[in-house]
Design a protein around this nucleic acid. Structure first.
Lengths: 267, 267
DNA sequence: AAGTGGTCTAGACCACTAT
DNA sequence: TAGTGGTCTAGACCACTTT
């Protein structure tokens, strides 16, 4: 017995580790090494990516995965520990491990960092301003890792807290992924857009990268947010990624930070 | 043998767990439970807080701690794993585990999130504008969890990238902790202030909470940053905490985001 | 009662660092 | 060569959830 990982049908997976633990012996001298649990993690991630287990669903138990991969439960546990830390899965004692989803109160504020200066955060109301297809400008294409001129879906919306317009969002989505996206479907849907993207288009965002600047409202923006021209706004440019670090959303938000603030915990 | 944790001199620690594992038996039915490794983690944190092991120093090996606390190495490992994830300690294979410090290139940008739009991040030059003692205004006192009117050290400085003024920082520090802090010592010191706070005042920041808004430069600010009045700036209000979630720094930074941006990873 | 994740132990070998 | 953290295993019991 060595420490390579047989898949479900027992074909070995490269690269193998140099072997460790009671029952493991060094057989291979692969050019690259990685711990067993990292290989297991990669395999589980592949199953998540391929859609074998969909968001919200229960994945096989640790014991079952251990048997499938021919490793100990502890090794599977460590792999799942990391996936859980990365918010790809959620563990529930006594029930099992579930694929993370945006359809939960838990994850409503994972990507929306704007909080009221006083009171409890709540989710804003949406108003869709515009939905159209267009050819990707060079900058948009670069950030979405597609070709300049490729089809993209452009969405503009305003979000309000208690009737006060606070967020102006411009979104660009790869047209190849979001084919049937219309203003109607967006208007029907309640809650975070990521929930819609997940259930209707099978695209699950797992992480995002933001760049924040301070800007002043121009005339167009001022009109949409019902503020004066020149009012300072937070400019939040976000690129969201799905499995495999593939960018699938570019979003530019303009946040009115009079009664709200962007919160961030540094640790 | 039960699963309570004897300290170094063998006095038991409350609360104990209900017991788990091979050699453990249930003896106590404490009103509150916590896993052994959490208790170990708390004990290690206490040693960090008390200064038994100072920033940059080597802490005892896992084996030694396991012996001291009368638990297995794996339990100590799990405790240290969490402390490592929280950036309280740093593990180095083959060498040991060290108390985290701000005196490393690694942690230079942990709290400074402003990055250049192009090129590699580098640390800015400091210019101290003002250092004085004053009585804490109500708002400052509230955020620092001290009494209104208590002595605080006020610092104003400008940070520049390649000679371009970019950050105007106002800091308020509890006077009781930062007694001998003068403009001279601040000017002598190179690198992040947190390094000075750590080595000169024994105060190690372990986490921080930020609130970000967009504002416009007023006359005073515009002069200090060499920009026009009305230029939009990022207003970053940060409260930094040391062990025990005790706030020990209030900082309001005004960031010029023309050639730089505040970066944030959401996951 | 059965199954799941959560904790704990004991022991082995590996990779890395210092002496 | 010795000591450290890193990985892996095997097995036990606990807490929680469902049948």
């Amino acid at each position: 017995m060595n420490s390579s990982i047989p898949t479900a049908n027992n074909s070995p997976v490269a690269p193998t580790t140099p072997g460790a633990g009671v029952g493991a012996s060094s057989l291979s001298a692969s050019p690259t090494f990685s711990p067993l649990y990292q290989q297991i993690k990669a395999l589980i991630t592949q199953s998540l990516q391929s859609g074998e287990w969909k968001p919200g669903e229960l994945i096989p138990s640790e014991m079952e995965l251990a048997g499938r991969f021919k490793v100990s439960q502890g090794t599977v546990r460590k792999a799942i520990d990391e996936l859980s830390a990365e918010n790809l899965v959620v563990r529930r004692q006594g029930k099992g491990t579930f694929v993370a989803t945006h359809h939960e109160a838990r994850s409503q504020f994972r990507f929306l960092r704007l909080a009221p200066d006083e009171g409890v955060p709540h989710y804003p109301e949406n108003r869709i301003i515009e939905v159209k297809r267009m050819r990707a400008p060079a900058e948009v294409a670069r950030l979405l890792d597609i070709k300049s001129g490729d089809s993209v879906v452009f969405i503009r919306r305003v979000q309000s807290f208690s009737g006060v317009p606070t967020i102006l969002d411009d979104l660009w989505l790869p047209g190849s992924i979001f084919k049937g996206l219309t203003a109607e479907r967006l208007n029907e849907y309640k809650g975070p857009m990521y929930g819609l993207f997940e259930s209707e288009f099978g695209t699950h965002m797992i992480r995002a990268s933001e760049q924040i600047r301070a800007v002043c409202a121009d005339e167009a923006v001022a009109g949409l947010l019902s503020v004066d021209v020149g009012v300072p706004l937070l400019n939040v440019e976000r690129v969201s990624f799905t499995y495999g670090d593939k960018p699938v959303e570019l979003r530019r938000g303009l946040y009115l930070t009079v009664n709200h603030h962007y919160r961030n915990e540094l640790s």
